[in-house]
Computed example of a mutant assay.
Amino acid sequence: MSLQLPVSTVSMQLTTLLTTIEIAATIAFAMSGLIEATRKKMDIVGVFSVTFVSAFAGGTARDVLLDRRPFFWVENTEYIWLVIAMVLAAPLMLRSRKLGLTDKVMEVADALGLGLFTISGVSVALVAGMPLVVALMLGSITAVFGGVTRDVLCNEIPKVYRDHQPYTLCTLIGGLLFIGLNHFGVSPHLSSLAGICCISGLRLLAVAYGWQIPSWPRDA
């Protein structure tokens, strides 16, 4: 028998929270895509394509696997206009604020998107009545897929596969924390905040201190 959380713990009161998390995640990953595409000196079509895919690929993969229609960005067309506005405002923003397109800016945006989209994916899966292990996996897929497609479009080996630093592992740890807190009756707002901070914090610490996951098998 599959172990599931009571849907009541993540149901009605999560609607507004999920929307807020989804918007923040979309902005964070859109920013990471925008920065990466600008660093690659793409034209406006390329910048928009990479930004759009970075923002929406993870959530779209989640919705496809859950057979959820319409897709979240189709249901909320404001997200599309938000991405368009970010792309069009990029030259003005970069010129006026002299924002350095550095690896640090990229890592922060990526880490925030990672935490936000993981909790979004886990929450939507739980509301849909998925078993815990499925919800955890969908949270990781939602968080990781946008970054993978961004790197592929930018002609890079996806970061999640190449640098041996914890990435997907961070989403699994934070997702488990979120599920555990919900299971023990912690409010969705507090458990979501804890999960997001755990995932984003772990990822930033991994980058800052160069944490490495050993290759598998070890003697390969």
Results as ranks from 00 to 15, higher is better:
35 I>H: 05
103 D>T: 14
119 I>P: 00
127 V>Q: 15
9 T>H: 09
150 R>S: 06
123 S>A: 13
2 S>E: 15
15 T>P: 00
63 D>P: 00
78 E>M: 12
122 V>K: 03
39 R>Y: 04
149 T>H: 00
19 T>D: 11
54 S>Q: 11
98 K>Y: 08
186 V>E: 05
149 T>I: 13
90 A>F: 14
136 L>S: 04
120 S>H: 10
89 A>Q: 09
142 T>H: 02
49 S>C: 14
1 M>I: 11
14 L>R: 03
10 V>I: 15
37 A>V: 03
129 G>A: 06
137 M>I: 15
176 L>Y: 08
154 C>V: 12
159 K>H: 10
117 F>C: 09
128 A>D: 14
7 V>Y: 02
26 T>D: 01
175 G>E: 11
212 Q>C: 10
38 T>S: 15
46 G>P: 05
144 V>K: 00
196 I>P: 02
138 L>K: 11
99 L>M: 14
32 S>V: 06
218 R>H: 13
87 V>W: 04
81 W>N: 11
125 A>K: 04
2 S>K: 09
201 G>I: 01
183 H>L: 14
84 I>Q: 06
209 Y>W: 11
69 R>G: 00
158 P>D: 07
201 G>S: 05
92 L>G: 12
109 A>P: 04
152 V>K: 05
111 A>P: 02
147 G>F: 07
118 T>A: 12
107 E>R: 07
9 T>Y: 09
35 I>L: 13
27 I>F: 12
188 P>N: 04
31 M>S: 14
1 M>R: 07
70 P>V: 01
79 Y>Q: 07
199 I>L: 12
31 M>K: 03
6 P>K: 12
33 G>L: 06
49 S>K: 06
124 V>Y: 00
129 G>S: 07
165 Q>C: 11
122 V>D: 07
197 C>D: 01
88 L>G: 05
54 S>L: 08
99 L>G: 04
134 V>E: 08
197 C>K: 03
182 N>A: 14
46 G>F: 08
146 G>L: 02
126 L>W: 05
29 F>N: 02
111 A>Y: 01
37 A>R: 09
2 S>D: 14
160 V>N: 08
121 G>N: 01
100 G>Y: 04
78 E>L: 10
41 K>E: 15
115 G>I: 11
138 L>T: 11
174 G>K: 03
155 N>L: 10
210 G>R: 06
190 L>N: 08
1 M>Q: 10
207 V>P: 03
143 A>H: 01
157 I>P: 05
139 G>N: 06
182 N>Y: 12
201 G>R: 03
40 K>E: 14
208 A>E: 13
42 M>V: 07
145 F>N: 04
63 D>I: 00
211 W>C: 02
23 I>G: 00
176 L>C: 14
65 L>N: 06
31 M>E: 08
167 Y>G: 04
